[in-house]
Design a protein around this nucleic acid. Sequence first.
DNA 1: TTGAAAGCGCTAACAG
DNA 2: CTGTTAGCGCTTTCAA
Lengths: 342, 342
Amino acid sequence: MSRRVTIRDVAKEAGVSTATISYVLNNKASESITPETIARVNAAIEKLGYVPNLSARALRYRKSNLIGVVIPQTEPGKEFMFSNPFYGDFLSAVEYTARTRGYRLLISGTSVGQSYIEIAQNHGLDAIIILGIYPTDDINAYKETKIPLVLVDCYRNDHFFHSIGTNDRHGGYLAAHYLIRHGHRRIAFVSGAVEEVGVNQKRLFGYHDALDEAGIPYDRELIFSGNVGYEYGAETALDIARNHPDVTAVFATADIMAAGVIKGFSDAGLSVPGNVSVVGFDDVFIANISSPSLTTVRQNIKEKGRVAVELALDAIDDPSGPKREVIIPLEVVERDSVRDIG
Amino acid sequence: MSRRVTIRDVAKEAGVSTATISYVLNNKASESITPETIARVNAAIEKLGYVPNLSARALRYRKSNLIGVVIPQTEPGKEFMFSNPFYGDFLSAVEYTARTRGYRLLISGTSVGQSYIEIAQNHGLDAIIILGIYPTDDINAYKETKIPLVLVDCYRNDHFFHSIGTNDRHGGYLAAHYLIRHGHRRIAFVSGAVEEVGVNQKRLFGYHDALDEAGIPYDRELIFSGNVGYEYGAETALDIARNHPDVTAVFATADIMAAGVIKGFSDAGLSVPGNVSVVGFDDVFIANISSPSLTTVRQNIKEKGRVAVELALDAIDDPSGPKREVIIPLEVVERDSVRDIG
DNA sequence: TTGAAAGCGCTAACAG
DNA sequence: CTGTTAGCGCTTTCAA
């Protein structure tokens, strides 16, 4: 931040006071200022290349025009979990929407022992969009700060905050039901950590629902949970191929895992969908890239990002207003990873 | 930014002046302040939950502790190009390194007609890391602002700024040479836009070098350039399969494109590497996921991100110091997408 | 060893 | 219609 042109320089250049500059800048009292004065001010601004200092404005307004986005990290204190394309897609959509509304994004992970709240207060963030918070995080600490929060894919909400997510239970149902409709009965469930009141738990419930409905017994042995990643998917598929040869289908709760599952089966000499069928979740570009392309439960990530920002702005404008809970619809996208064995 | 605990509140609570608080906060004159006063101040800070306001500090210090990262957008004014995992990986590394050094990232694309410079000045960014700037951008405008810049993968540098990149010409050579060593002579080159003094141009030169060296004639018909994406890769492979059946290998200048190429050949009934071999560039996770897994020219993206931040901090500390140019090494990673037909 | 006060750049009463 | 001025929260010289 080197020496910059300030409002005072502009005032001097235009031969008016700083207040006048400020008025012109903010379109205030535009009727009470002579058009020619306005012109003179604008000329001075142009000439000097004046750009407002948002730190000063933030100080004055108590408003930073900054939105924080909390992206999961691979491990506490480490890097972002961008290995799952979901987050990049979401972030893109958030940035775009925020930008068109005059906000920018502050991106920061947390180091171990550091609370994001501190970061938020440091920078006076106007709102925070949190992705997939887990029960271990104390969401209550945020309540005291009064910083508007938007919870994404979080079932911890008590309507103190806006939230946006999908009907994950229904999503799990859709996936399992789709497989059942295609004749499968031994269906493995592969997901990230199944946290209490987390998305994976809901998807598992949905999977359960579909089994129940079809009168298929639930087999705990077919439930696998580990890291949300390609590697774990691959390992699990190998495990399944070796120890559960009767499994004919897998529902993986993220496309990135599903891609790994396909790889694992392939390594085990099993073809997808020839020997075993796979359904993913999210519909990120990996679903198209993987071979075979992935039949998956699609959620509209762009829309999710867009609405998350809308909710954030909503909360900024009316911090004590009623809290909304938006559900983004899900649908199965049929591609090439499922075979009908019915 | 709701009402916050200020340094004055703390001062009152501790029964000292605001200056004392500031001293304690910044470990200044720690010898000139009674240990018990320090303790009292810290107790007050703790009790009130005081958190420093960085906007105020930024105003005072003329330092925002913010680094801007300029990520390419899919189209002018639109969303980030996160469809290429390269950017997410890079951003992760940048964020992690910046965070450990006490900096945060401001993320913003530009809307049409908007200059990033304005954004940078608005927020008083301490430095900017720019990814793949093109000749059309007027880098000169940045010079006047005096904001430290780090150019990533940019051949437009006149040593006014730090820069970091790879030896793209060598990378192109490595890829083509690898294919030639495996008996290929009709090798297509598939890339994004080949801009004057851009990375793709360099890679093309390197490809050319390898052909020359092997005495293979250069065939302009085998050079394809379009969007850096899966789709264009797939289209191009179809095109090649149809119109250039003698082509036995493809060098795609991004893994995401290479994945598309594999898909396109597959759709055309050609197998990789059975009928045609493919080499990618970057070594993002897609290279592992694609099937067959991709032989590719690896660059260490994490390292690139880390060094980009180091250079940025360097430039912040010593704005007029000598400018460094860092080259990240490249190497071919052998996987399963190339067949030896020699 | 600590406090008073000025000032970073901007805005908005309030005067004039 | 425009200027003066206080103050947002923090730092730092200077004085006590």
